Amino acid sequence: MKSVGLSIDIIQFTCDLKSTYSDISKVIRLKNQKQNDTKLVKLEFIKPNQRDEILSRGKIMVDSLTYVVEEYLAPARVLICSKCCGIGHFRKQCQQNDETCKVCGLSCVDLASHQCSQQLKCIHCGGNHSSNELKCPVVKEFRAQLTKRLLSIPSTDSHFRPQLSDFPVLNSAQYPTIVNNKNWYNRNNNDEQTLTKLNDIIVSISKLNDKIEDLSLKTDKCEESITQQNRMVKETEKQIFLVSNNMKEFNANIKQLEIIFKRHENCLNNVIYPILTDVIKFVVEHNQINGRPRDADLGYRLERLRNQLKNGLEGKNCL
């Protein structure tokens, strides 16, 4: 399956797939060379019928979304012996007594005591590379033939189970025959060139997929950053809205206080101050005996008190 978004929950995605396609046994999200998740998902089936039907349509629908599907072909792995650098067997299966230097291609009893010339020479094709290099044309040809053989074997099961008898071990006597047989090499030269080009194309596509995957990860991070910034902007707008409401409430309280202050000011100017003036006048008039004041300072203190109140109402210094 292609273009399965990285934000999709693979567990829920698996449940949706299995609820629609009962023959699906496993749903696996593939990873790239850096072990990062990709947008490719591999489906494994219990029976081939449903798989073949989906492949014939070339697409699959999950949760109202359509995804393009292609058959998954795992690349064949080529075994290269670490003892003799031969193809098709492990070190434990090697029948050669001496060890072969993968750099210069010379055989020796013990590689630890071998003095290598450090001149690269492949024992398979004689090329300027190490003998265990997977880019060797002979190794590529072997892998191509192995892949063709794997694809040509009919199987009624959805899982291919290779048998060891299908891939005989190449011993040291057989392998030089393959290398030195010029007719065999020339006969397969055109096929080898074609397979080499196809292999290079596959490698280029793989690198391109890695770059696209990296770009997708960067895009996801950028989208996440933008989402976080939008969340912060919304939070800031919310705080501004709250401050604005508080300011409105504060202004309303100020207006209310101004009204109360105005009332008190009117009360002082129109009620208390006139009453105090009349009281002072009355006290001054009754503070006299035979035309002389009983208390000479009383009138002065009362007049001073009245002036202080007047200055206070007018906003002047009360002292």
Rank of each mutant, 00 (worst) to 15 (best):
S25D: 10
I123D: 05
T196L: 07
M61V: 14
M1R: 06
K47P: 00
S130E: 12
T236N: 06
G291K: 12
Y21M: 09
P176T: 02
I240S: 10
A252R: 14
N199A: 04
L217A: 08
K31D: 00
K218E: 12
V243D: 13
T38C: 00
V233Y: 09
P137D: 05
L217V: 05
Q12S: 07
V109W: 01
A252G: 07
C101Y: 07
L268D: 04
K310D: 09
P176H: 07
N230T: 09
T219F: 10
L79T: 03
P48H: 14
V4S: 10
V103A: 06
L302N: 06
P75F: 11
H286P: 00
G315D: 09
T147Q: 13
R263V: 01
R301M: 11
C136M: 04
K255C: 04
Y21T: 10
Q288R: 15
Q174S: 02
C81I: 03
Q93R: 00
G127Y: 05
C267E: 12
L198I: 10
K234M: 08
T100F: 05
L302F: 05
L319D: 12
L198P: 03
Q115K: 09
I289K: 11
I54L: 11
C104D: 12
K248E: 13
Q174P: 00
N190R: 11
V233Q: 14
S155N: 14
D220I: 11
Q118I: 03
I202H: 12
N317R: 09
K238F: 03
S172H: 02
P75E: 07
Q33L: 02
R161T: 05
Q288T: 14
N49T: 01
E213D: 15
C101S: 09
